[in-house]
Amino acid sequence: MSFIKITEQDSHYNDLEQKSVRELLEDINTEDRKVALAVRKTIPKIEELVLQIVPRMKQGGRIFYLGAGTSGRLGVLDASEIPPTFGMPPSVIIGLIAGGDTALRNPVENAEDDEERGWQELQEHQINALDTVIGIAASGTTPYVIGALRRAREHGILTASISSNPDSPMAAQADVAIEMIVGPEFVTGSSRMKSGTGQKMILNMISTSVMIQLGRIKGNRMVNMQLTNQKLIDRGTRMVAEELGLPYSQSQHLLLMYGSVKDAVEAYRHKRLK
């Protein structure tokens, strides 16, 4: 099949500058409603990927996200939320963006066009066959990502891609190609919109389901979350109190002593059994 760049097709809406604010917001929302449906169609592929990631991570494997621009920022964002949410070290899911940390706030000229740099950065992290590399690019044509996926695959590393165009060059380098076809953007070519929203949803689905499979959630609670502010300490205290049937003050003492809901509950129950 020929490669169709849907992400660059003309918007379904014209004369945007002549619309009222209400019209703009309603039209953007109309387009955004298409995203969840497009993501839903990719669930079988996301499932295929997660089922391959989990056994690798149980043996010490990691996930690497690679992207440029909005796609790279979303990968870094998802990776950065894993330690506070699930109590995992920051080395378990790593986000790499073309141009490095500078590119998180400012565009770095030509960074995404370097086909070798992504693989070099993966090597700096001593990437190995237990790891997984997930390329993120709405267009599916970013050289920084394509080159990294190609080299990773050559070394027997599991590769996946998240794109908004069917049959892209990036997907051709992925063992699992997640193709979320959201259609033309509200502002022609502005893939920070529907494509970015869908990428965030898919990254949430991958990382959250992997962490649950790795035992980082109990029931529906973040029992391993980091206690980095008063809100999280309060939330954790209430979890301990509910789980053990203890007063708030005693629950908070246990939580702060052991550092996580899971450890506090297990320690208390272990002492009771002695």
Rank of each mutant, 00 (worst) to 15 (best):
K274F: 05
A137R: 07
S195G: 12
R151P: 08
P89V: 07
I181L: 15
R269D: 07
I134S: 01
Q52I: 01
R22C: 05
A174K: 04
P107W: 07
K58A: 04
N165T: 11
I134C: 00
N229T: 11
P247G: 14
H12N: 09
K5Q: 14
G75M: 09
K231C: 04
V265S: 01
E47A: 11
S209N: 03
H253M: 11
T159Y: 13
L130K: 15
G219D: 09
N106V: 03
K19I: 02
V261Y: 11
I6T: 12
G87L: 08
P166S: 13
V50R: 00
L74G: 00
T30H: 10
L149I: 01
V176R: 07
S168C: 04
G95L: 08
V223E: 04
V133P: 02
L255T: 08
R117C: 14
E242M: 14
S260V: 12
A267F: 02
T132W: 08
D101H: 09
P247W: 13
L256V: 14
I202C: 04
K41T: 07
Q52H: 08
V210R: 00
P89T: 09
N128C: 15
D175V: 11
Q199P: 00
L232V: 13
Y13A: 03
V108G: 05
I146P: 14
E116L: 09
K274D: 06
R150I: 14
M201L: 15
F64D: 01
D10V: 08
Y258G: 00
P184D: 00
Q18W: 05
Q230F: 10
G219F: 10
L273W: 05
G61N: 04
L227P: 01
N110C: 02
S164R: 10
Q120M: 02
I233T: 01
G156E: 15
R150T: 15
G135V: 02
T141G: 13
L24E: 00
T141L: 14
E31S: 14
F64G: 02
G215R: 04
H125C: 11
D167H: 15
G156Y: 15
E266S: 13
G219A: 06
H270D: 06
F186A: 14
G189F: 05
Q230G: 07
T102G: 04
M239A: 06
V108M: 07
D234G: 12
K34A: 09
T30K: 11
H270L: 10
G147I: 11
E23W: 01
G219Q: 07
R238I: 07
D234L: 10
T70N: 10
Q126A: 11
V145N: 07
H12A: 13
T132P: 08
K262S: 11
I178V: 14
